[in-house]
């Protein structure tokens, strides 16, 4: 199993479970789609948190597998799983410890909110492998940082530390490692259960006062 699912106090947690780097194999995306389908029918679900087992969120896709097995149908199915997650009415929050790169960051970019630990490293470095982000990461990043900045970051294959990512709008908050999950859960519990992604900034402003996040680290 590539995913560990737990449900506690109405908060569903999807843990990427392929340590140490939690590499995303093709089976991850079909499991994700199944869990999201389940989540869609769970009446008590208030929010979903995505996180990685152990030190890291995930180093991304298995490039060798990707080059061998990626047909347009598979990719489109994976893409639809992420787009479906972004369309959920319940808030989805990525809690990012350590590295979160490539396909894993595309996954995080489809979440409604992204919290990082102080030691998080994020980015879309696909172009270093002569590839591009293929499941919506480009557009999502452009939506958050503006097209110009996204174009630069993606063509240069840049990765960023948490502070950089925060300043570019790619992380919504930064917490010390131990406080990351509790903070994400507290934020999730404070949100309405039926969110409008168009009000993202408003939710952050209301439920995550500035002095609760980056100023503390």
């Amino acid at each position: 199993m590539a995913i560990c699912w737990t449900l506690e106090n109405g908060i569903g947690t999807i843990t990427l479970d392929n340590p140490p780097a939690n590499i995303l194999k093709m089976e991850f995306f079909s499991e994700l789609a199944d869990h999201l389908e389940m989540a869609r029918c769970a009446p008590d679900l208030k929010a979903i948190i995505l996180t990685g087992r152990g030190r890291h969120f995930s180093s991304g896709a298995d490039v060798a597998e990707l080059l061998e097995a990626s047909g347009p149908e598979t990719m489109l199915r994976n893409y639809r799983a992420l787009a479906g997650m972004a369309d959920l009415a319940v808030p989805v929050i990525a809690a990012i410890r350590g590295v979160c790169l490539g396909a894993a960051f595309e996954l995080a970019l489809h979440c409604h909110f992204r919290f990082g630990s102080a030691d998080a490293v994020v980015g879309l470095p696909e172009s270093n492998y002569n590839l591009m982000p293929g499941i919506g990461g480009l557009e999502r990043m452009a939506g958050l940082t503006g097209k110009a900045r996204a174009l630069e970051l993606i063509l240069r294959g840049s990765t960023m530390d948490a502070r950089d990512a925060y300043e570019r709008g790619l992380l919504d908050a930064i917490f010390p490692r131990q406080e990351l999950l509790p903070a994400a859960i507290a934020f999730a519990l404070s949100l309405p259960h039926d969110i409008n992604p168009g009000y993202r900034e408003l939710y952050l402003h209301k439920y995550l006062p500035k002095d609760q996040n980056i100023e503390r680290t």
């Binding site: 990707l66 080059l67 990626s70 047909g71 347009p72 990719m75 489109l76 893409y79 639809r80 787009a83 492998y129 002569n130 590839l131 591009m132 293929g134 499941i135 919506g136 480009l138």
Partner: peptide, 15 residues
Amino acid sequence: MAEETRLFCLLARDE
């Protein structure tokens, strides 16, 4: 979305 995955797969094939 379909065009993006198509373009990605062309790059993957080249690589």
